[in-house]
Structures are given as structure tokens and as C-alpha cells.
């Protein structure tokens, strides 16, 4: 039973014709839309490597059936930096050495962007640790990840205040 859906991915509309309802958002991105920046770590919602934003909120793309996402807006790691300028979270990840192998990194960054938007953690390291616990890092760059999210949160808040002023 084919499904035709419209997805906006990183600001670009895609008409997707799905011949198979089993295709997850993750596999759609990686195998059919040539957006392999989003990673598969467990394919079961247990590691967070596949995190993307769906309508602005972080989600595990491995557990979403693509055919159910008609009309959704998806942001992946490829869509985060506008015009070559790094997002503050990306910059903070580099500055704080918040990754080693880099495989979980797109998911970590998208999760951090989602967490900051939720406003749940602020710059409290314990709340950041809790809020980022859905993203496993086997290299265990957690110390840097927490610092990076803290720093990016502050920087974004400051930028926002300056923009408002």
C-alpha cells in the first residue's frame, strides 16, 4: 500500500512516495534522502544517535514510521548551521571537546538543541546531565557534552537578550 507524504526537511519540501510503510524516518533520511548525518546506533530508541527535531521537538527518528509524518517539519544535523555559520551548540561541542569518534554527535547536538528549546535544564549541570541522558556516548565524552550544553545555553540566552535589546 503506497503512501505519498510531504515532508519539510531542513526547510526544503520533499514529496516522498513510500512503497513500504515499514520505512522509518531514520532510514528514509539515510537511505532515501541522502541525509546520512543522522546516525543509527541501536534502531530501537535506546541510544539517541538518531535524534532529529520533528516540528521543533527532539525525537528518536528510528521509531517513527515515515508514512505517519505527512506534513511534518524535520530538522537534521545537516540543517542546523545556516549559511555555513555553526549553531552555538555545534561551536560549543568543538570548544569543549564534547565528542571523540563523532558517531553519536549529530544525535547529541540535536538533542541538546531540543533540550535548550524545552527550557527544562537552563544552565544547571545536573539538569543538563539528566536531560541529555537519552543520548549514549560510548567514547564517554559526557563531561564535555555537559559543559558544551551549559555554554551554548548561556550563549544563546545572551544572544537572545542582545537581539531583543
Amino acid at each position: 500500500m503506497p503512501h505519498s507524504i510531504t515532508l519539510t526537511v531542513n526547510g526544503r519540501a520533499h514529496e516522498v512516495h513510500l512503497d513500504d510503510p515499514r520505512v522509518t524516518l531514520l532510514d528514509l533520511l539515510r537511505e532515501r534522502l541522502a541525509l546520512a548525518g543522522t546516525k543509527k546506533g541501536c534502531d530501537r530508541g535506546q541510544c539517541g544517535a538518531c535524534t532529529v527535531l520533528v516540528n521543533g521537538r527532539r525525537a528518536n527518528s528510528c521509531l517513527m514510521l515515515a508514512a505517519t509524518l505527512d506534513g511534518c517539519e524535520i530538522t537534521t544535523i545537516e540543517g542546523l548551521s545556516e549559511g555555513g555559520d555553526l549553531h552555538p551548540v555545534q561551536t560549543a561541542f568543538i570548544e569543549n571537546d564534547a565528542f571523540q569518534c563523532g558517531y553519536c554527535t549529530p544525535g547529541q547536538i540535536m538533542s541538546a538543541v531540543g533540550l535548550i528549546a524545552e527550557g527544562r535544564a537552563g544552565d544547571d549541570p545536573e539538569r543538563i546531565r539528566e536531560g541529555m541522558s537519552g543520548n549514549l556516548c560510548r567514547c564517554a565524552a559526557y563531561h564535555g557534552i555537559t559543559l558544551a550544553v551549559q555554554e551554548a545555553t548561556r550563549r544563546m540566552a545572551k544572544d537572545e537578550m542582545e537581539d531583543a535589546a
Binding site: G45, G48, T51, V54, R57, R58, A59, N60, L63, M64, S111, G114, L115, E118, R120, G131, M132, S133, G134, N135
Partner: peptide, 9 residues
């Protein structure tokens, strides 16, 4: 329960 991502879903 779960993670921030899963709770959103």
C-alpha cells in the same frame, strides 16, 4: 521515565 526524546513521542 525514558528519555527526553521518548517522552516527546
Amino acid at each position: 521515565g525514558a528519555s527526553g526524546q521518548l517522552r516527546n513521542m
